[in-house]
């Protein structure tokens, strides 16, 4: 794998993480991180939508009329989001979780990560690297989501993926953790840790 491709894939995971560095996709990360299961489904949905939308739009990039750029992007992304939602509704295993996340899956259309990556990368690069960039950003986003959800589910409900963990030792779930403001505070701490490790990300 040439160095450029490797950079494309690894950058969004840490150094160019969409949430903690690019500040994109914040709204949904607050809402769906109450449970690990929800965070996982959301992350996988964003990976699928960003990856495939990037692939499609990159393939079309030389044909898109400049004045209709935003509309074409929105239409393709909307199509992907609706497809993901429809597919999740059809399988028994995912039906219940889709009901829970339906509002937020719909909001992926306005998730800045998708549009942001399409504008910044897919419209100027070849299809395969664009798809990989989309997927990698989705993974970077998902990683942060899972970290936040881990703490929120553990401290807020005493469970992990629905299985009682802290509840077994008599822990009383902390309601404040379930509320969205706490997710913001957690994100602040994650950014703190990341920048302590990567000093060049620190602001002057």
């Amino acid at each position: 794998m040439n160095a450029n491709l490797k950079e494309t894939i690894l950058n969004p995971i840490f150094k160019g993480n969409p949430i903690t560095v690019l500040v994109l996709g914040i709204c949904s990360s607050l809402a769906v991180t109450v449970t690990l299961k929800g965070a996982l489904v959301m992350a996988l949905s964003v990976i699928a939508v960003t990856g495939i939308s990037s692939l499609i739009l990159s393939t079309l990039r030389n044909t898109i009329p400049s004045r209709a750029r935003i509309i074409v992007q929105l239409v393709v992304v909307a199509m992907m989001v609706i497809l993901v939602d429809q597919i999740l509704k059809s399988f028994e295993a995912t039906y219940a979780i889709d009901k829970q996340l339906s509002v937020y899956i719909g909001l992926i259309i306005t998730n800045c990560i998708v549009m942001g990556r399409i504008e910044a990368f897919a419209l100027g690069n070849k299809p395969i690297p664009s798809m990989l960039d989309g997927i990698a950003n989705g993974v970077g986003y998902g990683m942060i989501l899972l970290i936040v959800a881990f703490f929120r589910e553990l401290l807020g409900s005493g469970t992990l993926f629905g299985f009682d963990v802290l509840n077994r030792i008599g822990y009383v779930p902390n309601n404040l953790v379930i509320l969205p403001p706490f997710a913001l505070i957690l994100l602040g701490c994650i950014v703190w840790v990341q920048r302590a490790i990567q000093k060049d990300l620190q602001e002057k």
């Binding site: 030389n62 044909t63 898109i64 009329p65 400049s66 004045r67 209709a68 509309i71 074409v72 239409v75 393709v76 909307a78 199509m79």
Partner: peptide, 19 residues
């Protein structure tokens, strides 16, 4: 000419229909 009005309208309509 990807910038002409006709192209823009045809393209957008086509994309919407396909989707």
């Amino acid at each position: 000419n990807t910038n002409s009005n006709a192209y823009t309208i045809i393209y957008t309509t086509a994309i919407v229909v396909v989707v």
